[in-house]
Design a protein around this nucleic acid. Structure first.
Lengths: 331, 331
DNA sequence: TCTGGCTACGTTACCGGTAAACCAATGGAG
DNA sequence: CTCCATTGGTTTACCGGTAACGTAGCCAGA
């Protein structure tokens, strides 16, 4: 039914090996032979078998795995897009997985992945089980950890400091005269990076002499609803806040919706800041003050770091991508 | 370096085949043997080689491919999530690709995919090149086409009628007393499904005796900005519209932002309707009138249809998932 | 006692490529 | 005229699993 190299070889009157070389565009054959082979392959509707190729030649396959926290995150959608575009251009295939912010789920996924003998892996975050790290080391896979900067990456890293994002936003709020700031987060205990931003925020405020008044870290996923209700909860405990920093833009927009619903004027009565830089944030009636993260660039850089490693070019082990605090009209 | 079945066999004092049977949880071995094998495998840090397994046994692999129009779409993020959760539970791995609304790019991706001999494929939409269809047929792959209902799916389909969505929204606007409706779309000529909604919308309005006044279909990606500027463009041409139907919720929200910026009162001066049902739509100051699409359910159904087909259970060829028009406060 | 069926394995033959080694012409340099 | 490099191939030996089939030992029932 399905043609293989042998069939083409027979049809073209050459050996299997010659067909292999022609189809992979190598050398060691005449133009005339090449044409006969190509025609035969075309005529027989040959579909290459990468399974056999990757298996037979122990050389790296063209498979790259990537694990994100959640597939529903707008930010990671852009990261994925950046990765996918770069990998496609470089001739790789992308295998994805979601770990739902759980290192154990990530381990299970990595275990599946390495059994496909991929060329490399891209992981999100720096929280991995020891078994995961062990597995990756044993498989001798190029690994890129994205999103957060790790002091000691497993292999390579592309990202930025979440702590610094928090610090910067804290400084901004202080500069804008805010003195009683709160924080609304999500994914309590599951998301290390949101926690890092909160740490940075808290530390900067404390240093400025106007420490964080209160923080509400929900267990929910960081969406609009969570922002709305987080804001409600926080303000019901502390009605005297003059600014609230959110886990991300979606939540901040939810928070803004709450303010609107309660007749709170932003930024006069209360300031609101987000994080991430989703498109909607810049088109709200009042542009949201937020930190823009170069998501697509991170994905692209991760894919290219991996590809560079695979072609033997020594790239940088750690790539720092700059985030940018964009002052809007909400604080 | 890396252990294989042979190594385990040697260590456990049995044959390769017995190891294979034990590790795959089959039968034909004693409990004592099983334990020796397991321990040896554990001790040697055995990592199975799915490449070899899928290659050797011509049986279907556990690889499933999925192609979406854009990875940055919020709606498709949820579809992907639904697919991924279901597939992971069923023991499959997900390989993804984006076609950027281009049948040619989809073909290129499918060509790559089939060379991995996957167990099945999930495609978005019903626009495929003849070569794509041919390729899939030749590979005898189970195929699920999602998102849009196809009259004659390649194999299976999970989705709904975009035309009907448009019809329903047209009816809603008429019921609300709107008589001069416009439309703002995106991805001109690339997105067949948005066009189908517009067709349905247009046809229903015409039938009601209040035909569509004007439509502005941009070439851009359907985001907030596009909605903002699309609204601006449309209203500059036709200032007398009393309602605008948007390609999706993001664009509708962009349109709302424009209204706010220009001091247009919604829904008094003008009505706004979206499509898709993003979370943000329900938390806006005025809840957006939109059609909610059960994205995650579609993904789940697609994955399960595929799995059913693979286990030999005959599932339905076409699964219709219901969309729901949710009247908000914007029209 | 013989037969048949079960359990618990072992043997053998692939799957479809690729690397590496090998070989037969051919043409040009010395 | 010989030698050697180059061109254009072929042959062989794997890669690591799995299916299919073979078989020894044991026990039950006729």
């Amino acid at each position: 039914m399905k043609a293989n190299l042998e069939d083409i070889a027979r049809a073209a009157g050459v050996s299997k090996m010659t067909v292999s070389r022609v189809l992979r565009g190598g050398s060691g054959f005449s133009g005339e032979t090449a044409q006969r082979v190509m025609q035969a392959a075309e005529r027989l509707g040959y579909i290459p078998n990468r399974l056999a190729a990757a298996f037979g030649a122990e050389q790296a396959s063209t498979l790259v795995g990537m694990c994100v926290p959640r597939l529903t995150s707008g930010l990671f959608g852009h990261v994925l897009d950046g990765v996918d575009r770069a990998l496609t251009r470089l001739g790789f295939q992308l295998m994805i997985g979601a770990n739902n912010h759980s290192a154990a789920e990530e381990e299970a996924w990595v275990r599946q992945l390495v059994s496909w003998r991929p060329a490399g892996v891209i992981l999100s975050g720096r929280t991995h089980t020891p078994a995961t790290v062990d597995l990756l080391r044993k498989a001798a896979l190029p690994v890129v950890e994205i999103w957060d900067l790790t002091t000691s990456p497993i292999d390579m890293a592309v990202g930025f400091s979440h702590f610094d994002c928090g610090v910067e936003m804290g400084r901004h709020l202080i500069r804008r005269g805010r003195r009683r700031a709160g924080y609304v987060g999500a994914l309590a205990r599951a998301d290390v990076m949101g926690a890092a931003r909160l740490d940075g925020f808290r530390s900067e405020l404390a240093q400025a002499g106007h420490p964080l008044v209160d923080a509400e870290v929900l267990h929910d996923a960081p969406g609009f609803y969570a922002g709305y209700y987080g804001m409600e909860t926080l303000l019901s405990r502390r009605g005297d806040l003059d600014a609230v920093y959110f886990h991300n833009d979606e939540m901040a927009i939810g928070g803004l919706a709450f303010c609107q619903a309660r007749g709170l004027r932003v930024p006069d009565d209360i300031g609101v800041a987000g994080w991430g830089g989703m498109e909607a944030a810049s088109i709200l009636p009042r542009r949201l003050t937020t930190t823009v993260v170069p998501t697509t660039a991170i994905g692209k850089a991760a894919a290219e770091a991996l590809a560079a490693r695979l072609t033997g070019v020594a790239g940088p082990d750690v790539t720092i991508v700059p985030t940018r605090l964009v002052p809007g009209e909400t604080v």
